[in-house]
Design a protein around this nucleic acid. Structure first.
Lengths: 225, 225
DNA sequence: TAGATTGTTAATCGATTAACAATC
DNA sequence: TAGATTGTTAATCGATTAACAATC
């Protein structure tokens, strides 16, 4: 049976899938626009926005075009307006309650990180396997037993999880998060974790980022030292 | 004058520039290989390595081919051997002393992070603007005044910097790092910083990573909640 | 030898850039 | 109106995948 015979004609409705790179640039545009507003700038344009981030003007316009028409020909973009639009696209026009798993070194830093709030995230609950941690309150967030994960995730309607546990514990913890209905995991553990298709994942491996830097530095001076 | 007439014939020597995406996958291969070794696996192959990370076998082989021939037809790759090769490529076959700027929440977590050491990095010095922090020792690293940056960077032969200061202070601190000869900066501040061409930069913006997750989760359930 | 898997070339696919009519 | 800048299409560029001879 020839599948192609049964494909619906390409319609505008089946909106082209948005490349991941576009979405990450969207976040950069947002950050830059917020900076503009703090500086008192009311409008900007694709040329300026791109130059500051090292992209071409065409790329900025193309990226935004995936989601709609936000600019004014001859003028550019109104910062506050575009900020609102991008936040709606990213889903951060409303605040997401987030669960933190693991309150070790890194977990506690995340609890204290002030940058989340303004961008639409709030750590609503924290968990740890260590009995000595359970019951403590850090940065006004109580540390709970993982046994209570399901209940707390439900009451706070939590969809996102920050995974800040040791590498050996990461997959198990991730499985627990999936089991209680978490839909997205930001994984700080330096291991690959497997998740079902419907659960999104972003990984941050601090050592890997330093490796990228190491390579870049080495490349600069081909045969040095 | 026709430049093309004077181009040297393409030689293997003028190695094609390596795409950034290739290098970041290289780090993932390394992490996976190290995991294999911990599990007692001696060899692997492009199919296995790719499957675990969600890449095709062809991609794995192509990526590695940028740097040389590391495999054995019919066999695959010897894990310990490939690990060594990748570390040399990334530059982490030797340990890099790193400077940390800012010992707030995040900076202290970085000081305590155990994952750096095994991958070839060591925080050799820490700095802060806050007089109350200067003189303290955290995780066996003394916190120094930024006034001593130049001297300490030189004595430890530090090339890489971790920038964990507030957004407002990031550009100034980056300028100071550049001034003392730092060649690469891992920037945790949620702002775009401008650096001279010869200084490499990698940025980690925690809120942006969560935004990517938010978007991905939203996409999963088109019109929900 | 037969089976497996590499390294590499060619084909495909997707993303970026250039160009320009439309518009403020 | 003239000047600036958008949104969008077509052209270019680069990255991924498929295919396969070479090799263990």
């Amino acid at each position: 049976m020839d599948e192609s015979k049964h494909r619906p004609p390409k319609s505008k409705a089946s909106s082209s899938p948005v490349p991941k790179a576009v979405v990450s640039r969207l976040s950069l545009y947002l950050r830059e626009l917020q900076h503009h507003v703090r500086e008192g700038q009311e409008t900007t344009n694709s040329g300026q926005l791109g130059a500051q981030l090292g992209f071409t003007d065409a790329q900025v316009r193309k990226d935004l075009a995936y989601f709609g028409q936000f600019g004014y020909p001859g003028i550019g973009y109104r910062c506050d307006e575009l900020i609102k639009k991008i936040r709606i696209i990213l889903g951060t026009d409303v605040q997401w309650p987030v669960a933190l798993i693991g309150v070790g070194n890194l977990g506690r830093a995340l609890l204290g990180y002030k940058g989340f709030r303004h961008q639409g995230f709030r750590i609503a609950a924290a968990f740890d396997a260590n009995p000595k941690m359970i019951g403590r309150t850090i940065e006004e967030v109580a540390v709970s037993d993982l046994a209570n994960l399901s209940e707390i995730v439900q009451t706070h309607n939590i969809k996102l999880g920050l995974l800040a546990v040791p590498a050996e514990a990461a997959q198990t913890a991730a499985d627990q998060l999936v089991a209680v209905g978490i839909e997205g995991i930001l994984n700080f553990a330096p291991v690959t974790i497997s998740l079902p298709e419907h659960v999104s994942q972003v990984g941050i491996d601090l050592a890997i980022e330093l490796e990228q830097l190491s390579f870049a530095v080495l490349k600069q001076r081909p045969a040095a030292d």
